[in-house]
């Protein structure tokens, strides 16, 4: 069980052994891409199902239960329905920007998966600046949302995309700072090394404040309640997605769930010991932890009302940012004291 995925990878690599080096690289790259895409699609589709079920049970309902056993085929029906919908492009919209925005938003959502260690030895690209890469790529999502909102030429969409820029740009800062503590402890930006460093102690124990900041900022980054102002449907219908229909609309939501999985995966990698765990295969441990994170995200979403935009921003600048800076300071001092105690030198 443990080696099922690494085995497949080794087998394909074996098949390509005789080919020229560039074919090998390309082939392996394609294989990782297909793997990641399959992972994203399967997760995203069943996360929608999970979200509906979780919310239903929190609200004394049953949720989808007609299609297939326990409604398990509901996401399939949803996907088919969305594919069959008419693709409407408003006459007043800025056509090309409107069309490519959902595609562009999907690209960073897929790209960030490159540095996620899904299990022991299961990392698509082991970049030595992994965490930095993740943050840099993830932040480009804002551009796509702004494009969608601006291109739709709709006032609600415009308001939503403006909110998204204000929100995502400001929450990126505490998000980044909260990760710095972990990076200082591990002494590396490489995700595989960070996971390796957590073999004995998970960083959530050493960096509880950072984890909390990361959790809050990540909720804001992926636009989930109580920070879902970007698509706050009670106020601005669906924000930047108001004018989208059918598959384009679905792409936005797909990327949103892809982002939810990726921030949960990063949280697991950086704070929850990655794929470490007893008895079960490493990749299963990773999945379990990711789903626990996702469940907490959902729990929060279906419990809290939406925060107001000015409170959101002042909370960020006045609470989260100073707190994350203080956390870095305390971590730095702590590391030095630890070194002094154990090694007897600075």
């Amino acid at each position: 069980m443990e080696n099922i995925f690494t085995g497949i990878a080794a087998y394909i690599k074996g098949l390509l052994a005789g080919a020229p080096p560039w074919v090998q690289t390309l082939g392996m790259g394609l294989m990782y891409l297909v793997g990641v895409l399959a992972f994203i699609f399967l997760n995203a589709i069943y996360l929608i199902y999970l979200e509906r079920k979780v919310s239903a049970y929190m609200q004394q309902r049953l949720g989808p239960n007609r299609l297939g056993p326990h409604g398990l085929l509901q996401p399939v029906a949803d996907a088919v329905k969305l594919l069959g919908k008419e693709d409407i492009i408003p006459r007043g919209a800025d056509k090309w920007i409107f069309i490519i925005a959902p595609v562009i938003i999907f690209i960073p959502a897929v790209m960030v998966y490159a540095i996620i260690p899904f299990g022991k030895g299961m990392i698509p690209v082991d970049l030595n600046i992994g965490v930095f890469y993740f943050l840099a790529v993830a932040s480009t999502t804002t551009i796509a949302i702004l494009m969608g909102g601006w291109g739709a030429n709709n006032k609600y969409a415009l308001l939503g995309s403006m909110r998204s820029v204000a929100q995502m740009v400001s929450y990126e800062i505490p998000l980044t700072f909260s990760l710095l503590g972990v990076i200082m402890l591990a002494g590396s930006l490489q995700t595989s090394q960070i996971v390796a460093a957590q073999e004995k102690v998970w960083y959530i124990l050493l960096q509880p404040v950072a984890f909390l900041i990361y959790f809050i900022a990540a909720t804001a980054e992926v636009n989930r309640a109580p920070f879902d102002l970007v698509e706050g449907e009670q106020e601005i219908i669906a924000g930047p997605y108001t004018e989208y229909t059918g598959m384009r609309y679905a792409l936005f939501y797909l990327s949103e769930y892809a982002n939810l999985v990726s921030v949960s995966a990063l949280a697991v990698t950086l704070f929850l010991g990655g794929w470490h765990g007893p008895w079960l295969p490493s990749w299963l441990w990773f999945l379990i932890k990711v789903y626990i994170m996702i469940f907490i995200f959902m729990w929060v979403r279906w419990t809290f009302p939406r925060i107001r935009i000015d409170h959101l921003l002042s909370f960020n600048w006045k609470v989260l940012l100073p707190l994350s800076l203080a956390n870095i300071l305390v971590t730095g001092v702590g590391i030095k004291i630890y070194q002094l105690l154990t090694l007897g030198r600075w």
């Binding site: 929190m58 609200q59 004394q60 309902r61 879902d228 009670q234 279906w302 009302p305 939406r306």
Partner: peptide, 11 residues
């Protein structure tokens, strides 16, 4: 409650 997005409180 729903208008401030407190979905669960609707029920």
């Amino acid at each position: 409650a729903l208008d401030v997005s407190g979905w669960t409180a609707w029920f």
